[in-house]
Design a protein around this nucleic acid. Sequence first.
DNA 1: TTTATTTGTGCAAACGTTCCCGAGCTAATG
DNA 2: CATTAGCTCGGGAACGTTTGCACAAATAAA
Lengths: 346, 346
Amino acid sequence: MKFEAVTIKDIAKALGISTSTVSRALRDSYEISTETKQLVLECAERLNYKPNPVALGLKERRTRSIGIIVCEIANPFFSQVINGIESIAYDKGYNVIITQSHESYEREVEALQFLSSRSIDGLLVSASTETNDFSHFKELSDKGLPIVFFDRITNAINTHTVMLDNFKAAYLATEHLIQNGYTRIGAIANSEFLSITNERMAGYYEALQHHNIVPDEGLVSHCFYSGLDASEIDDAINKFFASKKRPDAIVCFSDKLTIGALSSLKRRGIKVPDEIAMAGFLNYTFAELLDPPLSVIVQPALEMGRDATELLLQLIESKRPIQTFEKRLLAPQLIVRSSSLPKKKS
Amino acid sequence: MKFEAVTIKDIAKALGISTSTVSRALRDSYEISTETKQLVLECAERLNYKPNPVALGLKERRTRSIGIIVCEIANPFFSQVINGIESIAYDKGYNVIITQSHESYEREVEALQFLSSRSIDGLLVSASTETNDFSHFKELSDKGLPIVFFDRITNAINTHTVMLDNFKAAYLATEHLIQNGYTRIGAIANSEFLSITNERMAGYYEALQHHNIVPDEGLVSHCFYSGLDASEIDDAINKFFASKKRPDAIVCFSDKLTIGALSSLKRRGIKVPDEIAMAGFLNYTFAELLDPPLSVIVQPALEMGRDATELLLQLIESKRPIQTFEKRLLAPQLIVRSSSLPKKKS
DNA sequence: TTTATTTGTGCAAACGTTCCCGAGCTAATG
DNA sequence: CATTAGCTCGGGAACGTTTGCACAAATAAA
């Protein structure tokens, strides 16, 4: 089952001219007469000619496609980011090739292998949670492959990065709970390997300190696999409840963790916010439909995808090597709902 | 910023042999001596040689990439389908190139243009809601491009299709409400242009008829843009409440509509299920966290993606044209929660 | 020894496109 | 009339790979 396309040769044969003339006519070269151009254009139209990007890629040593590595497509945050990436890429005539690491270092390396063997022009990456060695990226980057990191970035490689102002986001969420009267605030975060985790935790601690609350290590849990496995989150909640003094609020530092924590609390029959208040990162548009409506930190995911893609294309299309790189920070948005209602005096 | 790859030529030069020998050695051809093979393999390893798929694509007239057209990536149903597609494609060494129609016929045609000009080996499509003319697909299909339709399919083109047993799904949801004592059941569905809409509506009517309930046209609403615009759904709900007799239950025939309807009812301050019960299609894993926990029809989205991809690859890799096509139907799953509790006698 | 067969290797064409180089033509200049 | 410049156009190499064919060397058979 083969599908034969019209080539420049077919046009040349039909018109009795050379392929070079056809090529030049199609590219509107100055050295072709207007009549010939007219003829070629018309013939191309008639035969429904489409340039073959594979041949072009071979000739020009570029494929007009960019690779993406994220942990999971089905995560709404990432699907929104991809949406942003796709919109810019499409406008500029680029394909996107999407791969998933499923939070596994090994699969990330595999995906990278796959993409680099497909000769992509550039790469957009949000690292897997297991990744703390970035040498596989570094190697390609050193060879000249343009890479832009977003969300989960690294400082090990000198390139553009785009991410949320994670410190501020976590600070906002934590301070909001404090201002509503909560003092024992449990935190559930991703793996400590992730850059974003540490920034978010820093924001959390800073908010506590600013309001003179002494942090309690019994109230901090890390989920190594980002809550991919529900039991991780149950364990985190269990730890809180095993603590000498139960927390009166929980803040969750990723989408999956927020949903997972709510689910876990429900299964335990704990009332939110009466028994425990909640706030967390969540990029679902319908957080207000949950029971209870959740107070959330929303990330500008679409914008993140767009920004990262613009920076990448800039890298790809630049004539000379770029030396100075941008570290773009995006602003989070706090939306207050009833999961974090002011604490009732008891 | 160019990124130079190692070619077969480099190996040939390094070893002082011809490129053909290298090529054959790498493909483990029987006509190359074991020692030469050893030498070449070792050298390839050392130089970190990766075959250039672009050159290969040109030579073999295939790109090992398949195109996808869906209406929206950020829709969880579709991101789950894509997940399924990606898993199979990746295993077989294919790229996927994803495009979105955003429910617009025009953008669908554009996406198709884009994909076909990128010389893909095959195409997976779920049509946009505006599409009732499939000639753009027909044209490419006739030229020999393998296409498989999933979810929103068409009978205008003779090829493999994969979709939910939509009739059964709608029947199940509707009958469930009837069995729980509801008799005036409003239906919110997508555009009548979509094949799946009509099948779902047929299931709805059949369930009513089977239980001797006379359908009421005042209780049926179609959202042309699949609820992409929230006001569409508000209008549908308004229509129900303007009806002589209000419905006592609502069934929604797509994910977006289900979420939209719940949101709309909440804004009006209507209690579910006390004032009106609900059931609908929904592929969110956490439908149980909503207020109220929703009774839903879940589609095997991952499986749909996998099946469609397997059928497509079968089409692509088949030596001779395939004449008999499969119309695969997948089974829906009904999950009952409290949004459709048995009606209280009043 | 000659002939046939096997084994290992290289040459060159092909895929579709671009682009350097040069050729033929007309018209203008000296 | 000879030279040059400007305008069109064609030839052919190149991008990286595969593959049919030819050829040389080695071995086996006659």
